[in-house]
C-alpha cells in the first residue's frame, strides 16, 4: 500500500490558553438558561475588552475558550488580568464567574483559523488541574516568563496527564 503524501503542516509558535468556567453546569441547573447566557456574555465581554492585538480567541468550547498569543509573557499577563476582572465581576454582580486557566507554549499545526496538535492537547489537560481563579502554566513558558519581573511562578509539582507520554512540570503564575 502506497502511503498518502500530505503537505507539510503549517505551524505557528506561540502560547495556547484554555479557560473553563468552574461549575457552569451546576450554575445553569440552579439559575436557568437565561442566567447562564448572561454569565457567558459577561465572560465574552471581559475577554474582548482585555485582549489586545497580540492575542485572539481561536474558538469557544461550551463555557470555555481557547486563546492564542504570539508570546508567553503576553499570554500569562493577559490570563492574570482576566482573572482579576472575572473576580471583580463575581463580587460586583454576585454571579460566580469562577474561571480556571491553563497555558502552554508550543508549535501547534494550523487548520484554517483553528489550531490542533500535541501542544493544544497539553494546554487542554493543564486547565483540568487548575483551581478556580488560578493560572497554571507549563515549563515551556518559563524561560520567557523567568525574565519578566512582574510575574511570579511557584512550581506545583510534576504532572502526568492522560495521553501525554512525558511528565510535565506545572507552575502557578501570580503577579509579583
Amino acid at each position: 500500500m502506497t502511503p498518502v503524501k500530505t503537505a507539510a503542516a503549517r505551524t505557528a509558535e506561540g502560547a495556547i490558553v484554555f479557560t473553563d468556567i468552574v461549575g457552569f453546569t451546576e450554575f445553569t441547573a440552579l439559575r436557568g438558561d437565561e442566567a447562564a447566557l448572561d454569565l457567558l456574555s459577561a465572560q465574552d465581554r471581559i475577554v474582548q475588552e482585555t485582549l489586545d492585538e497580540k492575542g485572539r480567541v481561536v474558538k469557544t468550547l461550551g463555557d470555555g475558550l481557547m486563546l492564542w498569543f504570539s508570546d508567553a509573557c503576553t499570554a500569562v499577563r493577559t490570563a492574570l488580568t482576566l482573572q482579576e476582572r472575572f473576580e471583580k465581576h463575581s463580587q460586583n454582580e454576585d454571579t460566580p464567574l469562577w474561571v480556571r486557566m491553563g497555558v502552554h507554549y508550543g508549535r501547534p499545526a494550523q487548520r484554517g483559523e483553528d489550531l490542533i496538535g500535541h501542544d493544544v492537547n497539553v494546554a487542554a489537560r493543564i486547565v483540568t488541574l487548575a483551581a478556580p481563579g488560578e493560572v497554571l502554566i507549563s515549563e515551556t513558558c518559563t524561560p520567557e516568563i523567568g525574565e519578566a519581573g512582574d510575574i511570579e511562578l511557584e512550581e506545583v509539582g510534576p504532572t502526568v496527564m492522560k495521553g501525554i507520554p512525558d511528565p510535565i512540570s506545572l507552575y502557578r503564575a501570580t503577579w509579583a
Partner: peptide, 24 residues
Amino acid sequence: VSAGTISGSIELRGLLGTVKASAV
C-alpha cells in the same frame, strides 16, 4: 517530596517537608 501519577493514588506517611503532588 513532589509526586505525580495518572490513575494511581499517592500516599505519604510519616513526617515530610514540603509536598507537591498531583493525580488524575
